[in-house]
Design a binder for these strands. Structure first.
Lengths: 161, 161
DNA sequence: AAAAAGTAATTCACAAGTAAATTATCTTAG
DNA sequence: CTAAGATAATTTACTTGTGAATTACTTTTT
């Protein structure tokens, strides 16, 4: 009853009593929580050598032992191809990744973490988990699992399209 | 078991069996769902005269009958002050809002929707609700309420800070 | 096998965002 | 009252992101 979205709901209900706002109660909060969480992450990364989008690239690479091609990276990070190129150029200059052309198809390249990139990804990922745990503090373990499960069911149908 | 985040969880578990990833199961999905939802919204707004961030400004104004000052708008939309100024300049030029200095403190201005801005906000908001409903289709009414309630409890402590 | 079509990464020209400085105004302390 | 200190919006200089070419291949068609 006391977050920003519940105020929004009240206002809209007064304006349009006919509209069904039950979806906004959930989706609006997903959007708002994500925006706030992104701010929290950016603050946490402020004195590291990478930005939040760059960290997302590092994290995606870290969990893929053989590296990834840029196309897969843009999908995993939900970015544009141009944004991925820029981030890779920046991360390569910083010595955190390497780009090597593929033998079997030389249009493609393989992006891999350097040792330093890998170590940095691990450190930053652990910090990120701490930040996320702090945000989820109001929920019990059980409720977190419940939340994850509900979100998973919403996410699954739209996550490939 | 089949969205992107559950793949991420598997990869990280293999890399670091010691880490507790239960928070990422929830927060990771919030972030990913929000990113996908924002894409959906942007696609839906593609042939309208406003972008998604501009729509968020219109929506915030629409639910505030007397208008808002820029400072409040930046808080409601989780933006920077500079971004708000740019959006207002753009929306004013498009004839969707007005900016009038306040009598009682002339550093501040009151931002209000024009009639056209108000009508546009209503149309776009109804469309947005439809898009959100489509995304939430996999959940029952009860589950949506459950999701909203869990998120509200997470959101409340961090939404003013 | 050559031409046409398709695909991956990048580049380009531009749009949108940001932090820090600036302008204008109000508030408060001496 | 006046100077110093806040505060609100904007401007400025710069960074980052984007869609639409472009480049460099590979695949398919004829």
């Amino acid at each position: 009853m006391s977050d920003a979205v519940s105020r929004f709901l009240h206002s809209w209900t007064r304006l349009h009593p006919d509209l069904d706002l039950s979806t906004m109660a959930a989706v609006g909060r997903v959007l708002r929580l994500a925006a706030l969480m992104n701010n929290i992450t950016e603050d946490g990364l402020a004195d590291t050598e990478v930005t939040r989008p760059e960290f997302e690239v590092l994290a995606a690479l870290r969990r893929s032992p053989d590296g990834l091609r840029p196309r897969q990276l843009t999908r995993e990070t939900i970015a544009s191809g141009a944004a991925t190129t820029k981030r890779l150029t920046r991360l390569e200059a910083a010595g955190l990744i390497t780009r090597t052309p593929l033998e079997r198809d030389r249009r493609e390249i393989q992006v891999r973490l350097t040792d330093r990139g890998s170590a940095l990804a691990d450190t930053l990922f652990a910090d990120q988990l701490d930040r996320e745990a702090a945000v989820l503090a109001p929920l019990t373990t059980d409720e977190r699992a419940q939340l994850a499960s509900l979100l998973s069911r919403v996410l699954t149908p739209i996550d490939r399209a």
